[in-house]
Design a protein around this nucleic acid. Sequence first.
DNA 1: CGTTAGCACTCTCGGATATCGAGTGCTAAT
DNA 2: ATTAGCACTCGATATCCGAGAGTGCTAACG
Lengths: 340, 340
Amino acid sequence: MDRRKQQVLKAVVEDYVDTAEPVGSRTLARKYGLGVSPATIRNEMADLEEMGFLEQPHTSAGRIPSDRGYRFFVDMLMDTVVPPPELVERLRRLYAERVDQVGRLLRQTAQVLSEATDCLALVEAPRVEPVTFRHLQVLPLSERRAVLVLVTDEGLVQQRLLELPEPASEADLQRISAVLTRRLAGLTLDRVGHTVLRELYDELAACGALLEVALEALRPPASDEDHPVFVLGTRRLFRQPEFQDLERAQAVLGLVERQELVRDLLGRQGNEELVITIGHENPYPDLYDCSVVSATYRLGGEVAGRIAVLGPKRMHYPRITSLMELLAQLLTEALERTVR
Amino acid sequence: MDRRKQQVLKAVVEDYVDTAEPVGSRTLARKYGLGVSPATIRNEMADLEEMGFLEQPHTSAGRIPSDRGYRFFVDMLMDTVVPPPELVERLRRLYAERVDQVGRLLRQTAQVLSEATDCLALVEAPRVEPVTFRHLQVLPLSERRAVLVLVTDEGLVQQRLLELPEPASEADLQRISAVLTRRLAGLTLDRVGHTVLRELYDELAACGALLEVALEALRPPASDEDHPVFVLGTRRLFRQPEFQDLERAQAVLGLVERQELVRDLLGRQGNEELVITIGHENPYPDLYDCSVVSATYRLGGEVAGRIAVLGPKRMHYPRITSLMELLAQLLTEALERTVR
DNA sequence: CGTTAGCACTCTCGGATATCGAGTGCTAAT
DNA sequence: ATTAGCACTCGATATCCGAGAGTGCTAACG
């Protein structure tokens, strides 16, 4: 692919992102300084179409980028931009405010993200597995129920309901809490080896059954309640011309309403700092007309989760990626302050 | 309003709910056994329109019910129905399953609600203020932060972050927890009187500042994280013909995305067992074309929160109200089992 | 040989027009 | 009081037409 073809492809993508209209050779020649005539551009576009980078919605319309075209653009052609300083400033101030609830911080991030991009924003709560225990406490709920509260080194708090095999006194629970904390603090679950377990059993022989229940509760991955996903900006999707088609919009709505699917979607993006998936690269057919841009945020140095925007393939990739990077950074910092 | 007018109004509402088309005199005469001719019905309808129960979208279309018409229907004319036995059976089985997370239970309720009604479902988490304390525990997070975990008599668990005025040892926290629990268990916050406070201060003179922080944390109303609202079924809204208009649909989407508005909306429905608000009766202009049906669910005998459906005014009120009652009941029972 | 001007052709979109049908209100008859 | 009949209204639907944008092809050009 020679230099000029790249220029043409880039111009097509940028113009289409801007106008949502198929772009023709004349527009290209006029608006972008390519220095050649529309006829030449037509030839190039025909080539690009043959190579699979462009498509024609119908004969005698302009061209639009194909998935492959977007992919090439994103990988090779995209300008790097920085978010406008006013925005950066505004966000810095917003995130400088002390927020004392993790959930609110995440929700705020989703809100900003969707506002600034006119797309749907997805933000998952910190994944805290595997995790280093800091404190474990079993509190009585009722005769046969208790709640295990676990505090991690990262400063996150989770709770798990326990079904007690036998009634336990408050003192029992207190004792088991103390021992669990003493033994497990500083360890991750996978590093709770046999030795530690043995010792634990010895020490808590009296309440063996109870202990088992408690350990069991440590095992399962974060539950829905501990690990929610914030989805904001559904309405903004409808501002995009490609979602005037209600069928398609409904499909996306239905998908993002299912927490487990969203979590799966984010999970599949891996742990790369910044990931862009375009159209058919997405794992769900309902998203074949969408793109997802996601970034990681961190907690205690470790990747803690992803934030993402979901929108039409025709999104402003440079602007959105730069914003994502900024927000991921701000969120990481704010989280660190909130939770530590 | 005489008997026949009522019959006509009822028929208009029922037919319009069914077909989403303005109903004319001929249809009415044919489909509903009113025993009079279309001309007579026309006269009745003209009267009903004058009285404000019906409206005409434009001259020479059929009539549709006005807000007032729906109101009269709901208050006076609506048949009471029971949900189909298969559905009841299915739901009973669904709710008989042990669910071990309150959040999941609420989410499930929202899901069922929206599926069965083709409307948007709103379910708020139990309001737990004012509340009877059962256990309070302060756990260390870091040098200067701690988390106050409070367990209520109803079996709910909440957490509040604390900013420590001065570093506190684990033993300090343990001690303060024990004292707080001993003193406050069995009380609601409003009943924590001066005497108790005085005694608390005496007993915990050593850690006065810390105590203040902890008591402060008890005060604020449930935070967003403790009291989420589940909103499900946005996509279903778009199945209703009245939401083909994207403007209107977007407005509703935007509204229900804001947790505080939804909470406010549910809060305003009061504590009545079952509440229906129609069109302009709603507090937000964006809902002037919608109706909301809500019901209470309970926990420990007290009203704990509301479940609701939001849909077009043209909804099947008898079916929806009966379903709401059933679900509120099932949710109450399941919650009792889960949490106790 | 790459580039460009010219041109015929294609296809969508918007607006104007005609038609259809459902429904009404009114009048007069029962 | 009810009803049949009738003229009239008005939205929805189908159809047609022209404008405009864009293409691909061909032939000329430097």
